[in-house]
Amino acid sequence: MWTCAARWRGLDELQNFLTGSDALTEQVLRRLLAGQRPAVVIGTIWPGWLADFNKPNMDANEDQLRAPARAVLALTTTRIRIEVQPQFSPAELEQAAAVADPRLHGSWQRPRTAG
């Protein structure tokens, strides 16, 4: 019998959750992590966005706009950076073409978009 459950709300493209009137705040994240049940929060963010939120030497107005996002990012206890190459290698393309899953066919030819 399970004594706990995981609830997944992916924070893919984390930068979309760090700005705007309904942005994820440090207080909300702290409340989630301090709850009665264990919690793990996983998010992905493009390196350019991460650098932008942590950019040094910005003017006071820009710094004030990014401060809430930096507070959320500062709560991370483990950061694992996974570099994704801009294109597949010939061996990866050959392997993908050999897979019988129709969802994959042609997907490796779509252009990569970055934020």
Score class of each variant (00 low, 15 high):
residue 24 L to E: 00
residue 38 P to Q: 11
residue 57 N to L: 08
residue 42 I to P: 02
residue 97 A to R: 00
residue 23 A to M: 07
residue 113 T to I: 14
residue 113 T to C: 06
residue 5 A to R: 15
residue 83 E to R: 06
residue 52 D to E: 12
residue 50 L to H: 01
residue 30 R to A: 14
residue 84 V to F: 09
residue 8 W to C: 13
residue 32 L to R: 15
residue 111 P to Y: 03
residue 47 P to G: 14
residue 112 R to K: 10
residue 19 T to Q: 13
residue 5 A to M: 13
residue 70 R to A: 13
residue 105 H to T: 04
residue 35 G to P: 06
residue 99 V to E: 10
residue 33 L to M: 03
residue 72 V to H: 07
residue 83 E to C: 03
residue 102 P to D: 09
residue 114 A to L: 15
residue 97 A to I: 01
residue 16 N to M: 07
residue 42 I to F: 08
residue 55 K to A: 13
residue 7 R to H: 15
residue 106 G to R: 05
residue 79 R to F: 05
residue 6 A to C: 04
residue 77 T to Y: 00
residue 25 T to G: 09
residue 14 L to H: 03
residue 105 H to G: 02
residue 88 F to D: 08
residue 85 Q to V: 02
residue 95 Q to I: 12
residue 40 V to G: 06
residue 101 D to P: 11
residue 14 L to T: 02
residue 108 W to K: 05
residue 102 P to W: 10
residue 56 P to L: 10
residue 89 S to D: 00
residue 113 T to K: 11
residue 80 I to L: 15
residue 62 E to D: 15
residue 46 W to Q: 08
residue 92 E to G: 04
residue 25 T to I: 06
residue 58 M to K: 13
residue 60 A to N: 07
residue 61 N to A: 15
residue 20 G to N: 06
residue 9 R to F: 07
residue 75 L to P: 09
residue 39 A to R: 07
residue 10 G to L: 09
residue 81 R to D: 02
residue 76 T to L: 14
residue 108 W to F: 08
residue 91 A to C: 07
residue 99 V to F: 09
residue 91 A to H: 06
residue 99 V to Y: 06
residue 9 R to G: 02
residue 36 Q to M: 05
residue 78 T to P: 00
residue 56 P to H: 09
residue 72 V to M: 05
residue 18 L to A: 09
residue 82 I to D: 04
residue 54 N to G: 06
residue 50 L to F: 04
residue 1 M to H: 11
residue 26 E to A: 15
residue 97 A to K: 02
residue 74 A to K: 02
residue 68 P to D: 02
residue 100 A to F: 04
residue 25 T to E: 08
residue 84 V to S: 12
residue 32 L to F: 09
residue 53 F to N: 01
